[in-house]
Write a protein that binds this DNA or RNA. Structure first.
Lengths: 197, 197, 197, 197
DNA sequence: AATGAATGAGAGTTCATTCAT
DNA sequence: GATGAATGAACTCTCATTCAT
């Protein structure tokens, strides 16, 4: 009896690789959604489900819940860095992108508060690195003599202050409050928008 | 399945009625500690354990998680109100007491951020009332022409901003950051201390 | 408070996917035993323990208490339906199978009484559907002119009556009482046995 | 310094006694209400609360939850006994009173089913005695040659059967089903009502 | 690599029962 | 005698994490 094998060899050898990358991206996207809907405390299983993958895949890509949060925030931070590297930019423009993320994602705010004891679970030291990258991006455009250039800490204290002011049910309200906060600090902010924006 | 309890041989002391008030106080004190260490999300069982009582006692005194939080925060708010009612006081002094509580208790900060979507569980409407009482206490001493008297919201936005700046491992560090924040806002603060202080 | 689990040193075998079906079956079997011993109020934890699985497994397979009950009773009802569909059957034979389950399982009796206010927790609407399936199975073999064919409700009232009579410590005693009850109703019952029996 | 004692000796020495009896009655009445609203599983604390006494009082009068249930049912049984002792009575009249209680109280039905394994918690052996008193009251009026006089058990099996048929949301519906059940048994029942009725 | 089931440790909540006052 | 607080076990349900397939 002749047995015709279903030809499997045609399947690209690196399908596994590609699928892996696709899954990772799907997980990050899902986490972003879930975090914004339920906060950083959302169950990991919800993220895997939303991404359409098994929970094991999540653990293959991320060692723990902190890593998931970091991956999500990484993208936010990257946008701020790119805004800082753009041609023809200045502090107000970078602050505009920063502010966008503040108003967009409770998780991003948590990151900036992460040293605070009892912060949302799972944002431990990763947060520190990301926070420093944000600081570098901003400081690159901080003119001498700027209000926030006086003391070493002023810049990030100001950012933390604005993040404290940002609350309210809709993004628009949160943006209004953020603008007000910057105004009270006497700091100019540009248009509030995501980076390639 | 039978719900009849097996009568235990040894039952830890029942200290009787007198213990009730003591237990309630112990619970509030324990909650204050736990909240300040872990935030409002801390498990109620940790509070009962710290207070040295069974979980049932906690539920006897407080119907739910929110009631515990309220009991703790109530005392903080009361101190601010009393500072506002004291003779010979002024805005800087009241802000000093407010700032003390900001640097003392993560829970107090959560209360002031409670409108934020996805805030810690169990800070529902109580938070709003308490927050308004703080606002009234401050506004009573807000002079016309003060920096924070320009727009309706400025006062509480500023408070939220300072609360956003307050973080760090020790109370002293948190106080330093709070002072810096008030300075960036151009607002004078008095000595930072609890009320009858 | 931190929710991160301490990774346990020793974790009891994970038998993998194959165990799923086996576990589900074990749960249903355990539930059947527990229910027949303690009634539908038995704690779910007892069922999981008897099945030799963790409680989480129970919740994976059954969303709630009602689903467990339904899964158990479903099989009983199915047997009655199959008895009704068998070739060469008649009302006494179907009643024999019905009576078997009455004498076998306190839960099955509860199901037939489920409308009663304050019935055991977890017998909500499922019970009604199952009860109707039993009724259909019986009615299919109810000859015109039968004692229980006079009024619409007579059939199921009679079943409820017999179920009320069924009590006693051993199955044999319960069967004797059931037979007596059918005799008092002037209704003939066949051999009392489970279906493929 | 002359000390006027508040004259206490005027307080009737047996005030305690009277209060005790009053409390016991209040507890039984409260239990009756609570049982009929929530079933025999209702928390004892609810009964004490409804009676307006502390939980300790409940335990002073009743050693356990079974004793409470018994005290409630005692009154029902007494009514049936009095109906049996009344002049000019007969089986249908006594059955009318019995049926009244069946339709009135889920607890009473539980009592009659109490031997059944897994019956509602707390109706253990007391139930047996009460059940026997009901049986004696009925049997006193059971004429030779009556349908239920054939075998020793027939009488109480019939009662159990009717109790099995009694369900439905309103008392009226339950009464209708009870009447139907007696009719299917070919047993005559009088007016359904409480005893001094 | 992916899947998705299993595990079991808590967290929250409810109550029976005891006992100091 | 009455009161009502305390105790703590038991139950339900949720998830982080592991691992056979």
């Amino acid at each position: 009896m002749t047995q015709h094998r279903v030809p499997e060899e045609r399947r690209p050898a690196n399908e596994g690789r590609k699928a892996a990358a696709r899954n990772r991206a799907a997980l990050v996207a899902a986490a972003r959604e879930i975090y914004s809907e339920y906060g950083l405390d959302a169950p990991l299983s919800a993220i895997a489900r939303r991404a359409g993958v098994g929970q094991g895949v999540l653990y293959r890509h991320f060692p723990d819940r902190a890593a998931v949060a970091t991956a999500v925030l990484e993208e936010n931070v990257r946008q701020i860095e790119r805004a800082a590297e753009a041609e023809d930019t200045d502090l107000p423009r970078v602050l505009g992108v920063l502010t966008w993320h503040l108003t967009q994602s409770a998780a991003f705010i948590s990151m900036l508060h992460a040293d605070r004891a009892g912060s949302a679970r799972g944002v431990p030291s990763y947060a520190h690195d990301l926070s420093e990258r944000v600081e570098r991006a901003l400081r690159a455009h901080l003119p001498d003599g700027h209000r926030l250039a006086a003391a070493e800490d002023d810049l990030m204290i100001a950012v933390a202050m604005v993040s404290g002011a940002v609350n309210g049910p809709t993004r628009e309200q949160r943006e209004r409050r953020a603008r007000e906060a910057w105004r009270l600090l006497g700091v100019e902010v540009g248009r509030v928008h995501p980076f390639p924006g």
